[in-house]
Amino acid sequence: MQIPTGFEAGVEGATLKADVRDLDFHYGAFHALKRVSMPIHDHKVTALIGPSGCGKSTLLRCFNRMHDLYPGNRYAGGGIVLYPDNTNLLSPDVDPIEVRMRISMVFQKPNPFPKSIFENVAYSLRVRGMTNKNELADRVEAALKGAALWNEVSNRLKELGANLSGGQQQRLCIARALASDPEIILFDEPTSALDPIATASIEELIIELKEKVTILIVTHNMQQAARISDYTAYMYLGEMVEFGVTDQIFIKPQKKATEDYITGRFG
Rank of each mutant, 00 (worst) to 15 (best):
I97D: 14
Y261G: 02
L23A: 13
T191H: 10
N73K: 01
G72L: 02
C173S: 02
E204N: 14
K17S: 14
F250N: 04
D188N: 13
T5P: 13
R65F: 03
M235G: 07
V218Y: 00
T246K: 03
F107C: 13
V20R: 07
G77N: 03
P190I: 12
V127G: 01
G129C: 07
G129F: 05
A76N: 07
K256A: 09
L59D: 01
S91M: 12
Q248M: 08
I49W: 03
Q168F: 04
G6K: 15
G129M: 05
C54F: 02
I215R: 01
K133D: 13
D138S: 14
E159K: 02
F250P: 04
V245I: 13
L216T: 00
G161Q: 05
D95Q: 14
A32I: 09
M38S: 04
V11Y: 14
I202W: 05
V36Q: 09
A18M: 12
Q108T: 12
V140T: 12
Y27S: 06
D68N: 10
L60A: 00
A225D: 05
K34T: 08
V106I: 11
I262C: 04
L90C: 11
E159T: 00
G146K: 13
V153S: 11
E183Y: 02
T58E: 07
K34W: 08
L89H: 10
R74V: 03
F63S: 05
G53V: 01
L125A: 09
K115H: 10
I80R: 06
P51L: 05
E211H: 09
P190F: 11
N132I: 05
E141K: 15
G267W: 02
I103R: 14
I3P: 15
V121D: 06
H43W: 02
P92M: 13
T199G: 08
D22V: 13
L205N: 06
G78K: 08
T258H: 04
T246L: 06
K44I: 03
A9N: 14
A29Q: 14
K17A: 15
H31E: 10
V20E: 07
N86P: 02
